[in-house]
Write a protein that binds this DNA or RNA. Structure first.
Lengths: 146, 146
DNA sequence: TCATAAATAATCGTGCACGATTGAATGGAG
DNA sequence: CTCCATTCAATCGTGCACGATTATTTATGA
């Protein structure tokens, strides 16, 4: 017989895994009118916070390597959300910059997401508690995988 | 300027997203000697809880469709963890059953995972709290994406 | 200066996730 | 018995994630 603490229902990893998949589904639904994937939205969030970043710094904030970012940024450029620039000062780097469309879409996208949030959502204190405990979990996992 | 609550650092989805990626890295590391991916381990967990399930029921427990499970189960079969059987009673179905190797590996795999858990892990009460709040989140997201 | 190391984005390969479709097998109504 | 709807797994296509490698450019030290 499997130990009680190893059952799927008691596994925090499985809970986090499913919460993540549902979050992605939720956002994909809200983002469908904009033809954006969840990950693409996360990248745009980072750029709305700070435009004109190079791939390396963007990757540091999102924990993405170039293997993930390079094709992702190419797709975002093709769809007109940003441009990829090669700075003359250091031709190894790649700098990304939001287009006018990219900048202007922030408001409408936030509106679309808010409109998808149901009435029965977590209240503010629960949300903050969830954020706090997940961030503590992340800190622990970071040392564990170090 | 981006609203404070929309910054990455304040987004629960981003926290869950990163916790999930770190969990996966943690388990991949622990599972490397067994040549198992995280998702394959999750499927084995479900089978250790209950062997001899058909694809449909397994998918219901893990929220996977045949598009995810079919190739995954084929790989698990190729690696000798389970066998895929076509029941004569209903030839539409596919039943999976652990091999001797699949059954016998439960203990060693659990040991390997335990050995990878560091000293600075979440304590029991924090773990339970995290599980509780994530499960509440899942319930809300399910109604939201419903 | 010049060789070598370091930094950096790009590429490659694998395995998920999942929306959508397909095709085979079964069950049920007439 | 015979359609016809239903139930399944399988297939297809796209986009991540990420380990590993490669190729280019810059920095550094003798």
């Amino acid at each position: 017989m499997i130990p009680e603490e190893m059952k799927l229902a008691n596994q925090l990893c499985f809970s986090v895994y499913n919460a993540n998949r549902l979050f992605i589904q939720f956002y994909q639904k809200a983002l469908k009118p904009f033809d954006l994937t969840y990950t693409q939205y996360i990248v745009l969030l980072a750029l709305w916070e700070q435009d004109h970043q190079n791939l390396h710094d963007l990757g540091a904030k999102l924990d993405f390597g170039s293997n993930t970012l390079t094709p992702l940024l190419r797709r975002l450029e093709t769809a007109g959300w940003l441009v990829r620039l090669q700075p003359a000062a250091d031709r190894r780097q790649l700098v990304v910059e939001l287009t006018d469309k990219g900048k202007a879409s922030q408001g409408p996208i936030f509106e679309a997401i808010k409109a998808c949030v149901g009435q029965d959502q977590l209240d503010v204190s629960q949300y903050k508690e969830a954020l706090k405990i997940n961030d503590a979990l992340i800190a622990d996992l970071k040392t564990a995988v170090g």
